[in-house]
Write a protein that binds this DNA or RNA. Structure first.
Lengths: 139, 139
DNA sequence: ATAATATTTGCAACAATATTGCAAATATGT
DNA sequence: ACATATTTGCAATATTGTTGCAAATATTAT
């Protein structure tokens, strides 16, 4: 994705364009999977302050640019939203895959989370599904 | 669950019986849903050291007494395993529900995680599903 | 029941992760 | 280019998780 496209993406999502945001956005575009705060801190090291990374991730998520992925261990991972996500409205109903070997977290955009029938009284709002196993590359 | 039954449960899972473990196990038995480390720290406060709670939860999980629930925010939650779980072998393939209103995390023992078809090359090992929404009590 | 052995606990220190206030720097709209 | 609004970096602080070790407790053998 070109720098111009990234500028547009930020503006489209109501954010001012800054170096930090462009850099972090670029990391997401080039990443093979989802990124944790720590990943970004390593890859963008020195240039960007830890605190800025926290705030950028928070802003990106609020504005609908990235979404979080639930994991069984304690690490929040973030991935780019493909489409249809806007401020306050995430629609990332695809399955996430975490490789037990290489640790990569991958969005399976084409596999969407199946509906399940809940016991009476439970009203579903959003569903998340995470599959662990071995990914294409590690097979 | 009586104290004697809890003692048995600990022994059955190859753990020595201690006050801390009995207290924490009791919390799980009486809890309406899953518990985070912080919840336990509050409820069992003063009596049990922070570190002991960490270690107890880790042991319980290793021995197959409780399982972790993935959440989108950064908090690990733990819940009692019902059955068929033993040292190193968890079989908690049921759906978890998190109420957006009261925040409770509930194991839906009877709803199990559906299979999904993955793209070629991905080999699934374990699936987790978490549904957000409104629970029975908050409706 | 008691002693010997193994396990667990609590404390202290430390490491890692996350949050907040505020002044300086940068971006936006006119 | 200027005025205004937003963002950044630094420092301080809070929260969360880990490790080593001696004292306390539980288990096993006698």
């Amino acid at each position: 994705m070109s720098t111009d496209m990234m500028r547009e993406l930020l503006k489209k999502n109501h954010m001012s364009v800054t170096d930090s945001r462009l850099q972090i956005l670029e990391l997401f575009c080039n990443a093979p999977g989802a990124l944790a705060h720590a990943d970004i801190e390593k890859k963008a090291s020195d240039k960007i302050d830890r605190v800025t990374i926290y705030r950028t991730l928070q802003t990106f998520e609020e504005k609908g640019l990235i979404h979080t992925i639930p994991t069984a261990d304690n690490s929040i991972k973030y991935a780019l939203c493909k489409d249809h996500c806007a401020e306050g409205h995430h629609h990332d109903n695809h399955v996430h895959f975490i490789c037990d070997k290489c640790g990569k977290t991958i969005c399976l955009e084409d596999v969407h989370v199946p509906e399940v029938k809940l016991p009476g009284g439970f009203v579903p709002h959003q569903s998340n599904m995470v599959v662990n196993g071995i990914c294409q590359d590690c097979k």
